[in-house]
Amino acid sequence: MRTLVLGLGNDLIADDGLGLLAARELAVTHGHLADVVETGLAGLALLDLFLDYDRALVIDAIQTGTHPPGTILAIRGDELSAVVAPSPHYAGLPELFALAQAMGLAFPRDVRILAMEVEDAATIGAGLTPAVAAALPTLVARAGAMLENWPGE
C-alpha cells in the first residue's frame, strides 16, 4: 500500500503556503507512513505526482468566502465532481481522475483532501495570516491522525 501526501500551494504568497508548511511538518512526523511531496503545480501538471500510488491525501488552501479563515474542510476525491470545486486545483482534479481512468493509468483509488479556508492568497512575501497560522497545528494533527488510522486494503 503506497500512500502519497501532497501539499499544494506557494510559500511565497501569504496563506497559500499552508499546504506546503503542513507537508513539511508531516514529512518529519509521518514520513514513515507516506511519501510527502510539496508542489506549486496545478491541473494536468499534477498527473505525474499521483501515478503509482494507492491512496493520496491532498492538503491545500481554499477561499470560498463562506467560512471563517482557519476553518478546516475534509473532502473526498470522489465527491469533487458532485460538490462545488472551490479552487482551480480541484477544478482540475476531477478531470485528472477521469483522464487517468480513461487511459488506464495507475492512479490512487482513494483520494482525500484536507483544505483550510484562507484570508489572503495574493500578497507576495506576507506569510500566514493570524487565524490560518493558529489553525495550522490542528490541520497537521488531523492529517497525521488520518494517516495513522487510514484502513489498509
Binding site: D16, Q63, G65, T66, S87, A121
Partner: peptide
C-alpha cells in the same frame, strides 16, 4: 492572471 496559480476564487467555478 497576475501570475497567481493559487489565488483561489469564490465558491462556484
Amino acid at each position: 492572471h497576475g501570475c497567481a496559480t493559487h489565488a483561489l476564487p469564490g465558491q462556484m467555478p
